[in-house]
Design a protein around this nucleic acid. Sequence first.
DNA 1: GTGAAAGCGCTAACAA
DNA 2: TTGTTAGCGCTTTCAC
Lengths: 316, 316
Amino acid sequence: MTASRAINQPEVVAPDTAARVRAAAERLAYVPNRVAGGLSSRKSHVVIGVIPSTLNPVFTDMVEALRAELLRSGYELFLGLSDYATRREDELLDAVIGRRPDGIVLTGVVHSPELRWRLERAHIPVVETWDLTPSPIDMLVGFSNEKVGRVAAEHLVGAGRRRLALVMANDPRAQARRQGFAAALRERGLEAAGEVVVRAPTTLGMARDALPRLLAADAAIDAIFCSSDQLAMGVLYEASARAMSVPERLAVVGFGNLSASAFTYPSLTTVAVDGQRVGREAARMLLDRFEGKPGETSSRPRVVDVGSHVIVRESG
Amino acid sequence: MTASRAINQPEVVAPDTAARVRAAAERLAYVPNRVAGGLSSRKSHVVIGVIPSTLNPVFTDMVEALRAELLRSGYELFLGLSDYATRREDELLDAVIGRRPDGIVLTGVVHSPELRWRLERAHIPVVETWDLTPSPIDMLVGFSNEKVGRVAAEHLVGAGRRRLALVMANDPRAQARRQGFAAALRERGLEAAGEVVVRAPTTLGMARDALPRLLAADAAIDAIFCSSDQLAMGVLYEASARAMSVPERLAVVGFGNLSASAFTYPSLTTVAVDGQRVGREAARMLLDRFEGKPGETSSRPRVVDVGSHVIVRESG
DNA sequence: GTGAAAGCGCTAACAA
DNA sequence: TTGTTAGCGCTTTCAC
């Protein structure tokens, strides 16, 4: 017990006792077993984040900010990969909950009912991210994907485009963006001039293939909205290969504002979300909860909408 | 105890007993506490992978293959981010070892001496990846970064290029590629016509900035080798913006063969490594070790060199 | 400032 | 097929 104290709160132990413990620990290359510690104290100092795939760089800013913020308060972040598959997410979260992390950060708000029920019963603080819903499991930091689609449509129509096409991934959040885009067009008496849906995880190549298909259906399309900057880059490359000038002949708008998007040529117009803020807010919500005395209601709101906005660059 | 068995090995329990346990578990939304289970059985069924950053997509294939292969044998993969910083890696690994995972997968072979000592003492199987070293901590699946640089230089010189420049990240593996490149040039009586070193984690923008700097130092450079495809894409964009034709005026070669690299325009010549194989081999080495009876020597070699090769595409 | 007792939730080992 | 005992490595609590 004295050894435990010497390591975790050296100040309450006599200096020479502490020194002796330290020396022994050093000699034995002792690494505390935090599994046992966590089991006993019911505190793991671990948060597990679940993202669909490391392939998608759109989550990078969120993850890095989340990690940095948690770290400052002595929490470690580990990542699980759900592979864009609901079944896989269920399995993964069984493992995650079973590990009793102090907090869980999820991407997306669409989960199986069983998962939801388990998460609620587990009494582990959960932050859902990257989308909005009227019925979050617990806490939520997101934005309206539907609005992202609307904003993109409004921007393109406002810029005089009339034959607008879509290249969309098939994940639920991308589909929400699609819906918003279509709704905004309808309100203006327009409709989409074409659409290609690609399967997540997406690649640049899928987007390159999409352009000729859209053109075959309607050779006069003058704008394309893609569900991610990655897809938009693919369209940009294909346009370049076909010597279709962007933005004169074709406007291209993406989503996510990847760190690369400002530096493509032409640079990419995109609907941006402040990923760092998502990560930071999520971390703070969790940290608030960790510190809160039981029964005390936190001052921090449990739902934050970080919004989104168009960043106009050269591509449209 | 019967409940424990009913959940973990239902076949050894009377059918109706098992059914009653299942029903109760269902009703209570019981999720086994794998922390306690792991503490007791000394088996966590978790492997922790440490990568520098989710930002760098070069590790994606490795991570996905590693995850898939482990999953098939009932192991879960979690990821920790080391941020390209040795100090951070030390802290992170204290947390990792403290969690007593069944295995650890590291990227890179350069670690602090204390870390090495701790890892050895912890008796947790460790696979280092993405590089070679004569003195691995335990197991190793990698390739020679030095050779990657050589191969790139040989390819470019073989293609008639004579004024070769470099855009390199400052991480140890990129620096090894640089050394190999320089050595191969020296052996041919050449030397690098310019070099820009950028700080990891790198961005496309850094590479765009690098091109004018190289050109200012030597306007006649005819080839650039970049330490990653990401940087190479930045150079490609900048060349495009300056209307420098690639590959006629300037050859560009990257490293990593990102999924995007085949689909850029012009498509990117790169030195490729089979990341999936790295992940698969690492997983199998670990699984072999997990299954091995103590004292039994595994049949699988402890060091695998997966090699690297040039993929010639349009950019050079 | 130090220590002894109990227990976190589970499983290994052995007994019935 | 089921149950009992002990203990994984630590922290909580309380006594000294």
